[in-house]
Design a binder for these strands. Sequence first.
DNA 1: GTAAAATAATGTTATAAAACATAAATTTAT
DNA 2: ATAAATTTATGTTTTATAACATTATTTTAC
Lengths: 234, 234
Amino acid sequence: MATREQKELQPIDKMSPIWDSLAQGEREYLREHTLFQTFRKGEMIYCCGDKPKYLVCLVSGMVKIYKDGFSGNRPQIVRIAKPGDVFAYRAFFAKELYCNNATALESTTAYLVPVEVIWQIIQSNNKLAMVFLHFTAQRIGVSDNRTMSLTQKNVRGRLAEVLVHINENFGIDADTGFMHCKLSREDLASLANMTTSNAIRTLSTFSDDGLIEVSRRAIKILDEEKLRRVSRVE
Amino acid sequence: MATREQKELQPIDKMSPIWDSLAQGEREYLREHTLFQTFRKGEMIYCCGDKPKYLVCLVSGMVKIYKDGFSGNRPQIVRIAKPGDVFAYRAFFAKELYCNNATALESTTAYLVPVEVIWQIIQSNNKLAMVFLHFTAQRIGVSDNRTMSLTQKNVRGRLAEVLVHINENFGIDADTGFMHCKLSREDLASLANMTTSNAIRTLSTFSDDGLIEVSRRAIKILDEEKLRRVSRVE
DNA sequence: GTAAAATAATGTTATAAAACATAAATTTAT
DNA sequence: ATAAATTTATGTTTTATAACATTATTTTAC
């Protein structure tokens, strides 16, 4: 008898604590109007200039959210979404068009909630409004801190910060210790605002110094304390 | 008969459209529990690590909101608040301590609304929650765009952007055309993430090139179109 | 009004990171 | 399986900006 490895697909309102305050009727309304969609690797989920149509709740896979670079400059990854993450709602609440892009980093599935559905529920559910307010307020802090890191830390400090962040937020393989999130050097560079060359070079020196172990795209942190120190002071 | 130059002090709920959705009872409650305070030039309004106690609504003067620099680095001005602006609420909604500082750039007066009062009203006034959600969502966008500017534009582009922004948001003297907001070179540098030397030097070249006119701290934009172009492409 | 402090103006040097170049390794497509 | 394309690895050069240094000007304090 084959064991069922594949996890049962949870309904949208069980995917994130964002929906905890929803009443039963609201949950049903949400479920009924939510789409489920698959994206293949590299596929665009939304892009800069689009009018926000859906809030996205990631079910499986990984999505990079990135801004196009100014005139000839490299694009910059703002953040990477993982299963359970809810995104693509900022522009809607700000009453703006999207000003960044989202593409699947690997084969990905997601719930798409039409913004009208969110609007409908949030108008009469103050708790939901407060949850989104809490989230957006936190994200301002994250964004302002990111600005500080990208402008005041040097290349080593920025890359160390990115590695520690990925390690913390995407987890590591229980057996090998390698990080689950395997990004190309180019994407690491884009996250840490540096050239791909510098990302590659700095990974090499981190590896030479025994801070990390590198095998292709897989990275294992060997000395987290030291890496954090590099992230703090450089 | 002496003309009354001094404007009558407006009540808090007339200071910003943020409060437009408040019912009469809520307005009275807000007014009754709001403090009015004066800050002299350089005085701190709140600082990094403090627990948020008040939402601040600026009545007169100017306030700089800035983050301390990492280990030995220069502080960075996040934004400058002007009369009518409401600030100091992000950390409260994010359930965090302040992670930046606010000091008066000149003699300043402000309404201080205890966060419990905000909480009380927002719990039962969905419209107010939506207004704050709209504001915070917008500010994430501003912050992310700021990150792009500070990391991808060169010194000239960054300073040009700051000048255009100040010109637009703080207005100019009707007679002379000089900008109302007169910052020290150090503060301009802090806004544009560069050394004071570079801000001074770049102002000189802008002046030499006929883009601006400089007289002490006062600056007048002579060729806004060209300055915008510098801001966009450099 | 004068001295002291802070701010502004420039010139010079040092340096971190980008740009460029080339080659090796890996992945993808046929 | 082989070729083509992409990604990774390093070495070298160039460049933008910080750091440093000095002087002039302006503001503040007594």
